[in-house]
């Protein structure tokens, strides 16, 4: 086989990205591309699982059984999305345990939005409408991200998340049209969540450290400010239908730009929360770490049991749900897409 030079590889990689082809796990990629992806996917995964906490805070107090079922399903989805994303990161050679360890020790971040508290039931609705709305605005372009496994995870996540935002909006609408106390609760929640939601798009373009390179690599498709503007434009009419006010006196339609103008964002607050000084930073990480530590004996027990009962089907009781492939073409069927993850993971942990 002909020798492939580093220069050839870079050229091939750049050409593939430029042609909108997907980069797959075993393809050669620049170290910085890999590092950027791991950082971004990990932060995204961490956000999903830390993001469970503010909403789970209301599961046991949900005011109707219908809302309770919806909320459990939503928080469950977030755990699932965390899992999809950790899997995507794993295809880059970084295991989930390593990433969790970095989260627990504060070496990797999660979205700062989850460092705000959910003080009332209406916060659950506001998170669904605004926080999930902002997340979706951010995430839809990621379905076309240049890295295949991340893009595929995002397709699945976006599909599943479409109910998250709608349930939040519906819940807020019920409150807004409910009793005066419920309406006030909804308005208060929107007042508190609006600005932090705008901060979710990250710092302004001229201050964003990673934006330019990420856009060149097509990890990112639109700039922070572009997406923020898109979100504001979507939210204003939605707020009108809700009968709620967005807490920004400078918010008004700009005919020339064809967009809504909005007031200045308090980036000092953003940086403080990012630094760890938000209302719930400590609490969120402490709970996550505790769940992980208190679960250690469970994970160890299952590993020990598996080691004792080494063969796959050697459980003491017949399983009700064993579905062993019986077709003869198993090998053919598996040879394809799984190539994504397995060998790379093997190399990474070897």
């Amino acid at each position: 086989m002909a020798t492939v030079t580093a220069q050839d590889r870079t050229t091939a990689f750049d050409a593939a990205v430029a042609a909108d082809e997907r980069i797959e796990p075993r393809d050669w990629m620049p170290d910085a591309y890999r590092a950027t992806l791991v950082r971004q996917i990990a932060q995204h995964a961490h956000s999903e699982i830390i993001g469970m906490q503010p909403e789970a805070n209301w599961i046991t107090r949900a005011p109707s059984l219908r809302r309770k079922a919806i909320l459990i399903a939503k928080v469950q989805d977030e755990a699932g999305h965390g899992l999809y994303l950790y899997s995507a990161a794993e295809t880059l050679g970084t295991g989930r345990d390593e990433l969790l360890d970095k989260l627990h020790s504060g070496r990797q971040k999660y979205s700062s939005i989850f460092n705000y508290p959910t003080l009332t039931w209406a916060d659950v609705g506001a998170i669904g409408w605004l926080v999930d709305g902002a997340a979706i605005t951010n995430q839809v372009p990621l379905c076309r991200c240049s890295y295949g496994p991340y893009a595929r995870a995002m397709v699945r996540i976006c599909k599943e998340e479409s109910f998250h935002q709608r349930q939040g909006y519906e819940s807020l609408l019920a409150l807004s049209r409910g009793t005066p106390a419920q309406h006030a609760m909804a308005q208060d929640a929107v007042n508190r969540w609006w600005w932090p939601s705008l901060m979710m798009f990250g710092p302004p373009d001229d201050e964003s450290a990673h934006s330019a390179q990420s856009m060149a690599w097509k990890i990112k498709r639109h700039s922070n400010d572009e997406l923020r503007q898109r979100f504001v434009d979507i939210c204003v009419p939605q707020a009108e239908t809700l009968g709620l006010t967005l807490p920004d006196p400078e918010l008004k339609w700009n005919e020339d730009r064809g967009h809504y103008d909005f007031g200045p964002i308090d980036w000092t607050e953003f940086r403080e929360v990012l630094k760890g000084n938000g209302p719930c930073n400590e609490q969120r990480i402490t709970q996550r770490r505790r769940a992980h530590d208190e679960g250690a004996w469970v994970r160890e027990a299952a590993a020990a049991y598996a080691a004792k009962h080494n063969t796959a089907d050697d459980t003491a009781r017949p399983a009700h749900h064993t579905a062993r492939p019986t077709e003869q073409h198993t090998a053919q069927a598996t040879a394809g897409p799984a190539a994504d993850t397995a060998p790379l993971h093997g190399e990474a942990t070897a």
Binding site: A56, I59, G82, Y86, A291, E294, G295, A296, V298, R299
Partner: peptide
């Protein structure tokens, strides 16, 4: 919710 020993659980 948010306290399980492992994400799958």
């Amino acid at each position: 919710a948010g306290h399980a020993p492992v994400l799958e659980e």
